[in-house]
Structure formats: C-alpha cells, structure tokens
C-alpha cells in the first residue's frame, strides 16, 4: 500500500553560487509544499545552502547498466590516466639531448 504520506523526496543543495547541485538527503512528505518545508528546516536554516531542490524519488530515472558504468573490459583509453607518458617523455628528452635538437630561431 502506498499512502500519499509515504512519498519520498530527494533533496539537492548548492552551497555557493556556481557550485554543482549535490545530493543532501531525503525527506518524506505527502506533497511538494510540505517537502519544501522539511527541506528548508533540515538543509536551509544555517546559511549552508544557496539553492535547494526537492525531487520526488519516484520521478528519478536511474541507468542500471553495469556493462557500461563498470565495464568488464579495459576502457582506460577513454581517460587521461590511461596515458602514462613519464618514461616515454624522459626517453624522448634524453634522445633529443644526445642527437641534438634543431636550434630554435631567435
């Protein structure tokens, strides 16, 4: 049985102008008016939030695809950390130093 008072609302808050909205927690309320009241009491009384959102939990659509989010195969080529250049760079510099790099025109 899902009574209206069982509705759960997720609260998102922005600490300062320009910051990302981050998840703060959740409140339970029959409608958005009371949800906002709770959110303001719990997350807005101490000058800790520049902006507050409440979103009904049942309105959130979640992507549930572990093969994409946590892929079983190596996907390191898609991330900066996938390129380890330290030793290659050292070798290239050493090589350039011994063979003599072309002088830069003044």
């Amino acid at each position: 049985m899902s009574e209206p008072q069982d509705r759960v609302w997720e609260v998102f808050r922005q600490e300062a102008e320009g910051d990302p909205m981050v998840h703060g927690g959740s409140v339970r309320a029959p409608d958005e008016e009371l949800a906002l009241h709770y959110a303001r009491e719990f997350y807005g009384r101490r000058q800790e939030s520049h902006r507050l959102w409440v979103v009904a939990r049942d309105s959130i659509v979640e992507l549930d695809d572990p093969d994409l989010l946590d892929p079983p195969f190596d996907r390191s080529h898609k991330r900066p950390g996938g390129y380890i250049i330290k030793h290659k760079l050292e070798a290239a510099k050493a090589r350039a130093a011994t063979t003599g790099a072309p002088e830069v025109e003044e």
């Binding site: 927690g25 959740s26 409140v27 339970r28 709770y38 009491e41 719990f42 009384r45």
Partner: peptide, 15 residues
Amino acid sequence: QDEVGHAQLLYRVAE
C-alpha cells in the same frame, strides 16, 4: 531544533 532534526534525518535513513 537541530537534535530533533537529526532524529528526523535518522528515522528517514531507518525507514
């Protein structure tokens, strides 16, 4: 008021 708020937040986690 803070402490009652904490109770509300924690009952939310528990429920």
